[in-house]
Amino acid sequence: MSISTPGGPQRRPTVVSTGKKPAAGRPAADAKAATDKPATPKRAGGGGKGPRKPIAPVKVSQGRSWGPIALFVAVGVLATSIIGFGAWATVQGGQSWQDKASKIDGIVNFRETDPESVSNQEHRSGKIEYAQSPPVGGPHNNTWQRCLGDVYDAPIASEHALHSLEHGAVWLTYRPDLPEADVAKLSEVIRGNDFMFMSPYEGLDAAVSIQAWGYQLKVDDAGDPRIKEFATVLAQNASMEPGVPCSSGNYTTGTGTEPREMQPSMGG
């Protein structure tokens, strides 16, 4: 940092004054140094006049270097915090839904473990056998089950439900003998939320199973917070056909687990 004035015979008496006014420094420096000179004859004169006072200049030049050091430390700290914040924001914001899903403890990703069976999206009539129970991928009925936060109180056809999963819905299933209080807890997660629906499911090997296309999580406690986490992270995101609706479709439990065939007013 400015130890001497450019071209002037005198060195600057202090470091602080130039550090504070970097922009204005150049033209004013000579004049300032000159006016400063009589005010601080001992320090400025010591350096300028040479060998007569040898100790003073050494001290001055040591003192001067603190300015740049302090500035560079400040710059370093600020730059590091700016870069650090940027990196943190990028990492936080850039987390995809797949990353978030993979962090849910116990989730099974069939898109990785069984890509063949979940890659089949064909439409088919009648009952269909599935590799998983409840199914998470494969052929399905051409009518989907309405999934606008619908809470179905009786079993529905997997062939319809799977079509909803293809549209990006999350399907929450529970063992039919689950206590009413637990079912109420589950319906709080689902009711009113688009791209979610729930129904009882016969023969479930856990109290609760929640699934999206290619993803499944089975838990034994209806109050498990992972249920809501799964629903929130995967609803819509897991869609195989982004932008496709959950409205219309089959909205009743009328045919039980038997798929019903498409009717004109059902959409399709």
């Binding site: 940092m1 130890i3 550090g19 970097p22 740049p68």
Partner: peptide
């Protein structure tokens, strides 16, 4: 020190 001053100005 002149270089240092320019550098300081630029960094600031």
């Amino acid at each position: 020190s002149r270089t240092l001053r320019y550098l300081t100005l630029a960094v600031t």
